[in-house]
Computed example of a mutant assay.
Amino acid sequence: MSENVKEELQKLNNRLDRCKYRLDAAAKRDDQSIVKQFKVEIETINKKIAKMKGRQQHTVGNQGSEVLRMPFKRVLTKAEQADMGKFKKSVRGVIVVHPMTALGREIGIKEMTGYAPQAF
């Protein structure tokens, strides 16, 4: 998942919060034209957020299928986890997946696992 998608999603969520706050203020003032304007804007932002989350989910799903197609995988030892730099240099092409990341949750791992094209 690219940082650009995360940043854009965060900006949309911030904009949504601002609009909801302004909608509440306009509703308290009983300004119907402004209320209608913000309701339309909130609906538009919600649609954009849903689209971005769908794109994010699609990307993670593609990454998960790519990782699962790799011919070799195994759970990493504590020593390998402790010195990740050394481990990644010694095993070329390894992809390390943590269970708490979106990718880790997507593929359903319970421990930090390494995926590689050849045995390590």
Score class of each variant (00 low, 15 high):
residue 1 M to E: 08
residue 1 M to Y: 03
residue 2 S to G: 14
residue 6 K to Q: 11
residue 7 E to K: 10
residue 7 E to S: 10
residue 7 E to F: 06
residue 7 E to I: 09
residue 10 Q to R: 08
residue 10 Q to F: 01
residue 11 K to L: 11
residue 12 L to I: 09
residue 13 N to H: 13
residue 15 R to G: 10
residue 23 L to H: 08
residue 23 L to M: 11
residue 25 A to V: 10
residue 25 A to W: 01
residue 27 A to Q: 10
residue 27 A to C: 00
residue 29 R to A: 07
residue 32 Q to W: 04
residue 33 S to A: 15
residue 34 I to T: 09
residue 39 K to N: 09
residue 44 T to F: 04
residue 46 N to L: 04
residue 46 N to K: 06
residue 46 N to H: 04
residue 49 I to F: 04
residue 50 A to M: 02
residue 53 K to L: 10
residue 56 Q to C: 00
residue 58 H to N: 09
residue 61 G to Q: 13
residue 67 V to G: 13
residue 67 V to S: 11
residue 68 L to I: 09
residue 68 L to H: 06
residue 69 R to T: 09
residue 69 R to H: 13
residue 70 M to L: 15
residue 70 M to I: 10
residue 72 F to A: 07
residue 73 K to C: 13
residue 73 K to S: 15
residue 77 T to K: 00
residue 78 K to M: 06
residue 78 K to E: 13
residue 82 A to C: 05
residue 83 D to G: 05
residue 83 D to Y: 02
residue 83 D to R: 04
residue 84 M to Y: 06
residue 84 M to V: 12
residue 93 G to N: 06
residue 93 G to F: 08
residue 96 V to T: 05
residue 97 V to Y: 10
residue 99 P to Q: 07
residue 99 P to S: 11
residue 101 T to Y: 08
residue 104 G to M: 07
residue 109 I to H: 05
residue 109 I to R: 03
residue 109 I to P: 05
residue 111 E to P: 00
residue 112 M to D: 00
residue 113 T to I: 09
residue 113 T to V: 08
residue 116 A to M: 14
residue 116 A to I: 07
residue 117 P to A: 13
residue 120 F to L: 11
